[in-house]
Design a protein around this nucleic acid. Structure first.
Length: 456
RNA sequence: GUGAUCGUAGCUCAGUCGGUUAGAGCGUCAGAUUGUGGAUCUGAAGGUCGCGGGUUCGAGCCCCGUCUUUCACCCCA
């Protein structure tokens, strides 16, 4: 039999890793709750009809599809079978898929539960998502997203709240970040004024690469996508836009003076900046026009967060979506949210050594096992410790002391209680502090009291 | 999806031009120490060289396929 394995891009997590992951999850969760968000969960699988077409063409390809159970070929027609036409075959053999993000399932959830929800609805959701991507640095096929969203309000206060939450979380985790902001309306306005209103996606995807491949290559790509030379020329001042956020907004106001949408986007951006000011944001916030984000449901603000001092994709991203619920038959409900990539945050913290040493929580007390009557007394005392809410365990057999102590040492258990024949006769148990090496005798009641008081 | 790349003991890695029985450090286990961990010393166990096929008298090493890892593109948390 060959060694067992797990699918490409998936991972096991050891107790040490889980302690660190939980540290991240706990931090994120407590901030979400602090800002008044409530948890929900949705199934790992959604109907394919819920997922398809929400993430762009590329997203559809990256969806994991689940084969129908039973005789999955029953509903297929011979023509597409013989033609090996996977696309046509798909809808007959698969009707479910693994969730690709948490935002679309959330929109579905809101529509389905609209009568039970108080709007504006503030929810958080921490669950894994799956993408059939090729794994690479910071990219997995199964990873956790931690989403906060609020639906049922157009208030730009929530845009600012997303940034506020992000800063709060990353401050607590000790990660220094840059918050990048943009607005789809500004992007739409740009497309409008250069005379290519229908090409927002191509334009944004191309200018998103500005930093990576440079101005010339972006222009080449734009022409290749079919933009006129004139449009590309008109785009240049926008691509070359520099200065402070305010200066950029002023220049943009002039450039977009004939685009109503564009001006609205600028107005929104200014309002968000004023809110951020009031919320005392201290992280660097950049107006970044190259920030586009491929997910095609965003309509207003776009937010993305990158860690400083490290080469890693964005560790958090989100934005405003005006009509995601409309796709599911509930129009006119606007939402805004942000997603934190727990696995990338882990990788950043690991590489920058930001985890506190004490994330691993283990047993606090081990009761040594001497067998016979001593074993029974040990068990009784063990239960007494556990009733007092002290995390404790007993060594399972009367092995050599060396072995029992080595076990406690390796598990970093800070205390050992020794109950042997001598202790049984005096009623005074030995307590060894594994950090200092000190050892003293106490009555059982004293031990419990001491451990509760020590709080180590 | 396209193009590269990696895989040898639990971990990190050596392994010459294709040549006998594949090595080291760390870790593990046992003992030195029969009621006391970390340090030291002694010893031991541990391998289908990712998997499958091929070339060869002979393959860890060469060739093909496959899986996995890492990386770039695409896209993204």
């Amino acid at each position: 039999m060959s060694a067992p394995s797990i699918p490409k891009g998936t991972r096991d997590f050891t107790p040490v890793e889980m302690a660190r992951r939980n540290y991240i999850f706990d931090t994120i969760r407590s901030v979400f709750m602090l800002y008044g968000y409530q948890p929900i969960e949705t199934p790992a699988m959604e109907n394919l009809s819920t997922l398809m077409g929400k993430y762009g063409e590329e997203g559809d390809k990256l969806l994991f599809k689940v084969l129908n159970s039973g005789d999955f070929l029953a509903g297929t027609d011979e023509k597409s079978l013989l033609a090996r036409d996977s696309n046509k075959l798909l809808k007959h053999v698969s009707e479910k898929g693994l969730r690709y993000d948490l935002t679309v399932p959330f929109a579905r959830f809101v529509v389905q539960h609209r009568n039970d929800i108080v709007f504006p609805f503030k929810r958080y959701q921490i669950q894994p998502v799956w993408r059939a991507d090729r794994p690479q640095k910071g990219r997995y096929r199964e990873f956790y997203q931690c989403d906060v969203d609020v639906v049922g309000s157009n208030s730009l206060i929530y845009e600012a709240e997303m940034a506020r939450i992000a800063e709060d979380i990353f401050q607590r985790l000790g990660i220094s970040v840059i918050i990048k902001l943009n607005n789809r309306k500004i992007l739409a306005g740009i497309a409008e004024v250069i005379g290519e209103a229908g090409r927002i996606t191509d334009i944004t995807v191309a200018i998103d690469k500005l930093e990576k491949i440079g101005l010339a290559a972006v222009n080449d790509e734009l022409r290749q996508k079919g933009l006129s030379d004139e449009a590309v020329t008109n785009l240049q001042p926008i691509l070359k836009l520099q200065g402070s956020n305010q200066q950029k907004l002023e220049k943009l106001t002039a450039i977009l003076e004939h685009s109503e949408t564009g001006l609205k986007g600028i107005e929104e951006m200014k309002t968000v900046f004023s809110y951020l000011d009031a919320l005392k944001l201290t992280a660097e916030v950049q107006l970044d026009l190259t920030l586009a984000r491929g997910l095609n449901y965003y309509t207003g603000a776009i937010i993305e967060i990158k860690a400083r001092d490290i080469q890693m994709g964005s560790i958090s991203g989100g934005g405003r979506y005006d009509d995601l619920t409309g796709i599911f038959g509930m129009p006119g409900v606007s939402g805004v949210g942000i997603s934190f990539g727990a696995d990338r945050i882990y990788d950043v913290m690991h590489e920058l050594s930001l985890f506190p040493e004490s994330t691993t929580q283990t047993t606090r007390v081990m009761v040594a096992n001497f067998g016979g009557e001593a074993e029974l007394a040990g068990l009784s005392f063990l239960y007494r410790l556990q009733k007092a809410q002290i995390s404790s365990e007993m060594y399972p057999e009367p092995a050599k002391m060396k072995k029992q102590f080595t076990y406690a040492d390796q598990k970093k258990i800070p205390f050992i209680v020794i109950i042997g024949s001598e202790e049984l006769s005096t009623g005074q148990y030995q307590v060894k502090n594994m950090v200092t090496g000190e050892q003293q005798k106490y009555s059982p009641a004293e031990i419990v009291a001491k451990l509760l008081g020590l709080n180590i």
